[in-house]
Amino acid sequence: MEFQIIWFILWGVLWAVYFMLDGFDFGVGMLHGFIGKNEAEKSLAIKTIGPVWDGNEVWLITAGGATFAAFPTTYALMFSYLYSALLIILFALILRGVAIEFRGKGESAVWKKVWDLAIFGGSFIPSLLFGVAFGNIFKGLPMDAQEYHGTLFTLLNPYGLLTGIFFVLLFLVHGSLWLSIKTKGDVKTRSEQLAGKMWYVLAIVAVCFLIYTSFATDLYNNFIIMPLWFIIPILAVTSLLSIKIFAGKKWFVAAFYSSCILIVMVTFTGIVGLYPNLIPSNIDAQYSLTIFNSSSSPYTLKIMTIVAMIFVPIVIAYQIWIYRIFRHKLSTSDIVKDTENY
């Protein structure tokens, strides 16, 4: 197999794993202020993501790094064309990161309120804008050989916004399922109820997204040419349904894993549909950035493949290790015993 194709698949895997992992801590970040009715409960919600959120964001860095090293032309043009949008995401992620660490370092109500707001905004804005960015990539950007014919507001078109809302809802359900399996007591009960209710909204938006995609993008063409690939969107729909079934039986661990599969399959539906483009041009297909016209040299890709084969398993191993260490369920009584609170 050609190295470009290997790296295209890896590029997809990195984004899918990133959304699967950072998705639930974005969800918790958006929900902690609503599910937590008092300071101890809010702190508890943040505590469930405390040891893992930064490791999850490593996958974003690797996704960006893989784009840079494997497809430098796409990287350069994407960061120029989507400059303002990506900077807003960056600012939000910076604020969110420090907010998670800072909120436990002060006692006053104003202090907590400011950082809670930063955690909420820093979780909501990237969730929405990653959706908007991917919606626009699915749709294609208005670019020709010379430049990008759009602004930040061109991105906020109906399809981009729908994808953004879809992402936000995916992460909200994902985050509330995470809280259902990681907490005890009132927070758990509220998270379970919220996941059940929000599932209906997610299902409606998911159906709208699937239908709108056939009008707004060319994503389905690859599936029509090779119908075998339809297994991926079918798995996405199946896992969406199984979230509801498992949640109904109170099997929240199974529901959370279904939600993981759902996010991975949604991402891969987009990735398969994009092939061989990384960013299609909606002006003319000849200006599209494909994995062949924007990749590094075969030699670079070969070295990177070897490096990735060594280090990706190491990263996966230590992340699994972290999740194992912090696998215990938390309740508000753990908050007061601990001196390193969020």
Binding site: S80, Y83, S84, E147
Partner: peptide, 20 residues
């Protein structure tokens, strides 16, 4: 220099980074 980014965008991001 990127051709598709104008000076206003750069100025805004510069001021933004400084303030943040």
């Amino acid at each position: 220099v990127s051709k598709s980014i104008n000076t206003t965008q750069v100025l805004i991001s510069f001021v933004g980074f400084t303030l943040l």
